[in-house]
Simulated assay, not measured.
Amino acid sequence: MRTSPTPTVDVRRADERFTTAISWLDSKHSFSFGGHHDPANTHHGLLLVNNDDVVRPGAGFDTHPHRDMEIVTWVLQGSLVHQDSEGHNGVIYPGLAQRMSAGTGILHSEKNDSWRLQGGTAHDEPVHFVQMWVVPDESGIAPGYEQLEIDGELLAGGLVPVASGMAKHDGAAAIRIKNRYAALHAARLQPGRSVQLPEAPFLHLFVPRGAVTLEGAGQLATGDAVRLTATGGQKVTATEPAEILVWEMHATIAA
């Protein structure tokens, strides 16, 4: 649904997130997820899930179903092995953009198989990744999968389109998502380097590692996020080596 929201800048600190901590998983949820539910914190714009996950070696998410969701996975450290019921499989690693369209229904698993990827020698290498879900334009589409290496573009230090359904990113975004009002951008920033946020009715800025300052809002540390409405154009500047993920959204989920 297109809308004209009131301008706001809502800073959410890392320790305010829901947490799931079990033997093989440390997961931080920016929005209601699984057994964690807050009716006042279900989404921002079109973004329903922003899970910050660390999975220990040899473990992961067993085969499970999804439906009618665009799922983007971004790895920060280690390797994540993907397999699904449509026959897609691959290893997701830092600098590789990956999207799965659940559509009419798909089964998939995600595992930290780092011990196997290095000749079967056991070692302690967790995989750290952020998984983000946005709603598609329409339900009942065919399931799909896409991944592409964009590490070279990230080395330039600017804000790089990672996944988009917006016409303005035709030919530029690494991977396509089935929502014409949403785009994910990423940047790797060295201290002192800045990028400028796009202008949109809804923005979600997440700092999965490092530290930055946001113009008008101050310091943001690892795990912090900002939900912006009816704004944009602010500078994000690294105060230490950092990586940021920015969702640009020109619509929201109907209440």
Rank of each mutant, 00 (worst) to 15 (best):
Q131M: 03
S27I: 03
D124E: 08
K168N: 06
P57V: 13
G103N: 07
G152H: 07
D52L: 03
I141G: 14
I22C: 09
T8S: 11
A182K: 06
V81I: 11
G171M: 06
H66M: 00
V236R: 05
E16V: 04
L228I: 11
L203R: 07
F206H: 02
P57Y: 07
H66F: 05
E149F: 14
A221W: 06
S79R: 15
G35P: 04
I253M: 08
T42R: 10
A21S: 14
I244E: 02
S85K: 03
P126D: 04
W74L: 12
E149A: 09
Q190N: 04
H88R: 04
G152M: 09
L25A: 08
A102Q: 02
F129R: 02
P94S: 12
N51G: 05
L205H: 03
L80A: 10
F31P: 10
V195N: 02
S4D: 12
A156C: 04
A182M: 10
L76S: 10
S139R: 04
G87Y: 05
A21C: 09
D53R: 13
V160S: 07
G157Y: 01
I141A: 12
W247R: 02
S85N: 06
A230S: 07
T73Y: 14
R67Y: 04
A225Q: 00
T239C: 04
P65Y: 03
E70P: 05
D26Q: 08
A174K: 12
Q219L: 12
L228G: 01
V72R: 04
F129T: 05
T19H: 07
S4R: 12
E149L: 10
V49W: 15
S4E: 15
Y93A: 11
V160M: 08
E138M: 08
E86P: 08
G90V: 07
D170F: 10
G158P: 03
E70D: 13
D68V: 01
H204I: 13
G223S: 10
G216C: 12
H169A: 10
R116Q: 13
A254G: 15
V236A: 06
I22T: 09
H64I: 00
G87S: 10
V134C: 14
L96K: 09
A172S: 07
R99I: 14
T63E: 15
T63D: 14
A174W: 14
F202P: 01
W247T: 04
I106Y: 01
P191W: 02
W133D: 05
I177Y: 00
R180L: 00
T252R: 12
P191F: 00
G34I: 12
M249Y: 00
H43R: 13
A254W: 08
A174T: 14
I92S: 04
I253N: 02
A163C: 01
S85H: 04
T231I: 02
H43D: 13
V134A: 15
A186N: 06
V49D: 11
F202V: 03
V160Q: 09
N51R: 12
H36G: 11
Q118D: 12
P143L: 05
F31C: 12
G192L: 10
S109M: 13
S114K: 06
Q98F: 00
S109E: 08
A14Y: 03
R2H: 03
I22E: 14
T73G: 08
V195A: 07
D52V: 00
E70T: 09
D151Q: 15
Q219H: 11
I22V: 15
G35A: 11
H37A: 11
D137F: 07
V72H: 02
G95R: 02
G210I: 03
H82K: 00
